[in-house]
Structure formats: structure tokens, C-alpha cells
Amino acid sequence: MPLDEASRLSGTTNIVFPDVPMLGLDTVWFQVAGSVCNLACTHCFISCSPDNHTHAMMDAAAVEIYLRESESLGVREFYFTGGEPFLNPEMIPILRAALRRGPATVLTNGTLITARRAADLKALSEDSAYSLDIRLSLDGFDAAANDAIRGPGTFVRILEAIGHLAAAGLNPVITVTEACEEAVGSAGRARLLGRLRDLGLDRPRLKVMPLLLLGAEAGRTRAYGKEETLAGTELTEADAASLQCASGRMVTAEGVYVCPILIDFPEARMGSTLAETLRPFPLRHRACHTCHVQGLNCRT
């Protein structure tokens, strides 16, 4: 066991970590593309890349089983991520199956969204009474800033994708991480919104996301320090309720994990069905500290 791993699990002797309760299965995430991505961003918290096969893709049949189970457990909404979801050849049928049961959000890097795919997504969205939200991530206002993080040529491809979605009549939520320092200030925000309007989004939607110091991001900036855990912290009811792990679970090809953030940690795998994961979870990991301190949740 590497040193870091050992210190992370050091709560076994006298350090007490708070448990997060499971309040209700509102959100079910699907690691639908596994850890395979056509990009290899330097800030990716699960280090996805074209040849990271740690997590396998899910096929439509596997997703269907969990969709049904979530429905019986009162699920409110579905999220699809990877890796890059549109590398999954069954992504459109998977979304259609989800949208029969509830609202769905896809987190994509956009580079695989062609005019044709944008039209397919629009048709899916029109066919359902539920919302289909597309979240597209961008890392800067120009090729230099974005491509330094996401790889050469990606900026232009992401803008093209936004153009295709806008032309199809879809309005993606553009997410920028705090790695894009300009996006945090209001002047930078206004500039980015202006840029999105120029691309055809007349009602641009923008969200700024905090970074997680895990995976590739730990190498780019820094890893979590030893002191940054929730050891000894008492969670108030409201604090606990705001964490993703209090109201959601992550389904992968290898079973169900506590949350989308910890799928690289075996102790975060809670079971093979959703029902068996509806129990409290100890917040031992340093990423839990970020979630708690920054109020990171799927609504932000």
C-alpha cells in the first residue's frame, strides 16, 4: 500500500471520521463511458484518457437494470459521465431510456458533438416531458488557456460543438473550472457570456466548478495535505444533506460507488445493487474535505 493510501486510511486507531447519512436516492450517476476519454486533460480528477481502461464502459442493457432499480427507489434525476459519454456507441438509446423515467444531464467535453448528434439530442429532448441538460466543459476564453489544460486543438472543437447545439435549438450549460482563473471574476464572466452569445446561445448558461485535487489534478497543482480531512469534524444535518453522497450514488460497470468523485478508491464501492448502498458512509477521504468546505454538489 502506498504511503498516501496508508495515511488516508489512518482513521482506524483513534481518529473518528463523520458518517454521511443516506437521506434518499435523488440522483443516480452513471459512469457510462468508464474512464475512457478522447482527451487527457491535466485537471481530470480521474485521469481519464484514450487508454485508461480502469473502468469499463456500460452497455445499454446494464444501464437499463439500474434505471429500473432507481425508479423503484424513488429516483429524481440521472447524470451521465465518463470519460467522455459520447464515446459510448449506445449513448443515444441510453439517454432515451433515462428520459422515459426522469430528467437527465450529460457531462461532455463536446468534442464528439457533430451537427448530426446535436439533432439527435434535440429529438430526444423533444420526445420527453423531462429536461435533457447538456453540460459542456470549457477551460478558458482562448485556445492558449483552454488547450494548455485540455490539449491542442480542443478549443476550436468545443466552440464548434456549442455552435452545433445552438443551431439545433439546445442550450447547454457551459461549465468552467476554477483552473480558468478569469472566469471567477465578474468581468471575465461577462466576457465569456458575450463570447457564448456570439456562438449562437442567446440565453447562455454558465457554471463555475471547484477543482478536486485528485488524479491528474494532484500532479498539476498539488495533492491534498494530511491536515485536509474531516477527521474529528462534526457534520450538522444541513452540512450532511448538502453533500452528493447524502442523496446520490454512482453506478459503474463494476458496481455502485458512494459518489462520482471516489470511483478510483476500492473502499468507496458500496455494493452491486443500488438498494444495498442505501446506508451511511464514513467520510475518510481528503476529497470529502473539499466537498464539505466548498459546498460541492451536483446543483452547483
Binding site: 435523488d26 425508479e71 427507489l73 424513488g74 429516483v75 429524481r76 434525476e77 423515467r101 426522469g102 423531462y130
Partner: peptide, 11 residues
């Protein structure tokens, strides 16, 4: 309306 699933409503 578009974000409240039947499953959630039933629950």
C-alpha cells in the same frame, strides 16, 4: 415540471 420524475413524486 420537467425535473420531477414520477418515481420521485410517488416516493
Amino acid at each position: 415540471a420537467s425535473a420531477t420524475s414520477d418515481a420521485f413524486l410517488r416516493k
